[in-house]
């Protein structure tokens, strides 16, 4: 059963990429296809980050603890789309001009934020295997993987700072992230109060 669910989620998660391919072949990417692809990949990175963060609250609400078995795959997809999102910038915008990239990262808050998100996600992807969890030890591994919180925050900032005027879309992602992080903060305080009572 779980195997089936995993397979379905795996292929569904590739759908955004398949859609871009289909649109590309059928001339549906508009006048500025590179911008379209970059924006789409960025959006899906945010979606997968939020989905990954939604697993913990969802498994409690829905009483389906097994949902946690999907979390690694969703997190890896977030990194996958983030890495793809970075490719057009690296190749088409900057053409591997590392000096120009370094200057850009330092100078432009929205690039700084986006680049930071990618850097924060990289070690999480690299340590996602069961072998790595064992090697690091569960506790240290978990502490390292708290990096998803700052990664998601800077990813949303990256979007907020990029938009010219209409903030509706980025604020929607910011609100979703605030709810997911708020859930954790609330849980943290509830646990502290409870332990203080006893």
């Amino acid at each position: 059963m779980l195997g089936w669910v995993k397979a379905v989620v795996f292929f569904l998660s590739l759908a955004p990429l398949a859609r871009l391919g289909w649109l590309g072949v059928h001339g549906g990417l508009g006048a500025n296809p590179i911008e379209f692809i970059t924006h789409s990949l960025g959006t899906w990175t945010l979606v997968f980050l939020l989905l990954t963060l939604a697993i913990t609250p969802l498994r409690r609400w829905l009483h389906v603890p097994a949902l946690v078995r999907l979390r690694r795959m969703l997190g890896l997809y977030a990194f996958f789309y983030a890495a793809l999102h970075f490719v057009p910038y690296l190749w088409l915008d900057q053409f591997f001009d590392w000096a120009a990239i370094a200057k850009d990262v330092v100078k432009r808050p929205f690039i700084t934020a986006g680049f930071a998100a990618l850097l924060l996600l990289a070690p999480l992807a690299a340590t996602s295997t069961t072998g790595m969890i064992r090697r690091l030890g569960a506790k240290r591994w978990q502490r390292l993987h708290y990096l998803i919180y700052p990664a998601a925050i800077v990813a949303v900032l990256h979007y907020l700072w990029l938009v010219k005027q209409d903030l509706t879309q980025p604020l929607f992602y910011a609100a979703a992230l605030a709810i997911l992080l708020g859930y954790r903060v609330a849980g943290h305080f509830r646990r502290r109060w409870r332990s203080a009572d006893t």
């Binding site: 006048a31 500025n32 590179i34 911008e35 088409l92 915008d93 053409f95 850009d104 100078k107 432009r108 808050p109 929205f110 700072w161 990029l162």
Partner: peptide
């Protein structure tokens, strides 16, 4: 003179691949 949030040094000509 850059826009405070992004560079104005380059542009993508619609229809072209590189900036």
């Amino acid at each position: 003179i850059d826009h405070p949030r992004w560079s104005q040094a380059k542009e993508r000509r619609i229809g072209e691949f590189f900036k």
